[in-house]
Nucleic acid binder design. Structure first.
Lengths: 90, 90
DNA sequence: AAAATATTTAACTTTCTGGTTAAATTTCTC
DNA sequence: GAGAAATTTAACCAGAAAGTTAAATATTTT
């Protein structure tokens, strides 16, 4: 956890795209996979990195595994950036 | 350029630390180097990545090369995060 | 113009990353 | 309980990343 794992997770375009897809709402891994040309295994690995960084949560629902965005972790990133920019506001 | 190069640049802790050091004001490469245990060459490479991503500017001053923070690029990151969080405010 | 200083570039090594395919796991359905 | 479906895990590979030391470059000083 911490800022490092968050930034590392966000540095990959596929992972950022996954988060964008989850913005619309939770969905099963398979739905996410179908948005990409890479294998399901590759997407699964990306998901586990996002989960490790706490940017997503997952739950099993029947034989699907549902992924859901957890944007709260991004607060730490916002703070870091604001600090860098001189702490003018919030 | 673009969000990708920014995020990639920010994903390394040494580079984030460099940006933090530059928050206090512009300084020569050598001053930055002295804050780390790694070689000057290594820091120089980090600086070139930050420059490539437009997160810093450099200028020669005598036999020093002065680096300066350019926080404006971070705006794009803020926008991306805010969008992800549901575009509530700004 | 030679020496000293500040920094970058080159060549190289090791470790990490992101992808692949194949096998394992979990749950549902027949 | 066997088979199908959804997903993860394992083993592997190629290319990128981050460090090292040594050589090159640019500038000032003597």
């Amino acid at each position: 956890m911490g800022l490092q794992s968050t930034m590392k997770a966000l540095s990959d375009p596929t992972r950022r795209e996954i988060l964008n897809l989850l913005k619309k709402g939770p969905m099963p891994a398979g739905d996410l996979v179908s948005h990409f040309t890479m294998s399901g295994a590759a997407v699964s690995k990306h998901l586990s990195i996002l989960k490790e960084a706490n940017l997503v949560r997952d739950r099993r629902e029947g034989r699907f595994i549902i992924y859901e965005l957890n944007a709260s972790v991004l607060e730490e990133v916002l703070l870091w950036i604001r600090d860098l920019k001189g702490e003018k506001d919030s």
